[in-house]
Design a protein around this nucleic acid. Structure first.
Lengths: 182, 182
DNA sequence: TCAACATGAGACAAAGGTGTCTCATTTTTT
DNA sequence: AAAAAATGAGACACCTTTGTCTCATGTTGA
């Protein structure tokens, strides 16, 4: 049952650290229904576990985006579809953002590549007319990331359904929230 | 020199915790050029210090917004001006977001009130036609918050000046980033 | 100058988290 | 059934952080 224990620990890690980023390894082990020693048998320490969680989270993101954009009709549409599928995954990512994992080459590389892929998609969308070429790509990438987070929070707070939140985030990105006349 | 010590500790708190949210009180004391015992004389413990930091940060925000919107011509314009002045203050706020301070009544109340004030301003701006009345206020508030954060990050990363970032954030909110023809 | 107060430095104990190890038990594989 | 592997539980030492206390020094204000 080696695989199962590792999987249970990872899943517990997401659950526990999402709720409390400073939770202890004992908390994680308990949530996983596993002895503390067993956790250490699979992951050398806290940083090891965090690294594993980060890698899993990023892989999940990759997979979800890959699946969602498989048959997108354009880069712009691919970005919209990505936004949609990323929202439910946000809670598996957010607690990692504040984890100082930049010094782990493995994580840094994967993260950097993810950002680059987004940037490339944005540039491609620009050529399609999906985004204004005069707006810096760095800004568009940041806006996508943070609006995804915003969408996740309003869903979490019960202020919108995932579909509604995705639509709002995309609209904000594309055409903003301006109203008509009074 | 009582006042000065407290002030130095607070300032050091912002500096140190911004760089590393899990820094120790010894780190803060050192940065403040103050003995660790002195820190404890002014703030009972870590949570006390964090609470003080949160209150100061929120007060700064209030003051900045108050000053910036003093002679705004409309609620919509007031929101734009607020966005502008908030961006440089973001680094004094962000590290507090991940601090579990909800159980401190003092902080919770101030934070709640701040959100409410923003929501009220948004509703007022809606009536002016600044925002579409069909877009939920909760979304607009979240979008303002997260785009402010986005603006702060691009400035931090050297990808834009504060003025550029503020303009980009506001444009995103108002009319989005859509491009014209290819 | 003198008294009150604030401070720095260091010692100290307490608490919590971490990592390691052992041993008995359970589970899996052969 | 027997061997091998994985696990749970607990004990243990180690380290860091925290909070308290004391004492000598420095600063402020009367």
């Amino acid at each position: 049952m080696l695989k199962k224990s590792k999987a249970k620990i990872i899943e517990a890690g997401f659950t526990v650290f999402s709720a409390n980023p400073t939770a202890t390894l004992a908390d994680v082990a308990k949530e996983a229904g596993v002895g503390r020693a067993t956790l250490h048998r699979h992951y050398a320490g806290r940083e090891d576990l965090m690294t594993a969680l980060a890698m899993v989270a990023m892989q999940e993101l990759d997979d979800a985006i890959e699946a969602a954009t498989k048959d997108a009709s354009s880069y712009t549409e691919a970005l919209r579809l990505s936004l949609e599928v990323i929202i439910p995954l946000a809670d598996r990512q957010m607690f990692l953002a504040n984890e100082p994992l930049d010094h782990v080459p493995e994580v840094l590389e994967a993260y950097t590549q993810q950002l680059e892929e987004t940037a490339e998609a944005v540039e491609a969308a620009k050529e399609e007319g999906g985004f204004d070429v005069d707006v810096p790509t760095a800004w568009i990438v940041q806006a996508i990331e943070t609006l995804t987070y915003a969408a996740w929070t309003v869903v979490r707070d019960g202020d919108a359904t995932p579909e509604e939140a995705a639509a709002l985030a995309w609209r904000t990105l594309q055409s903003g929230l301006m109203g008509g006349a009074k």
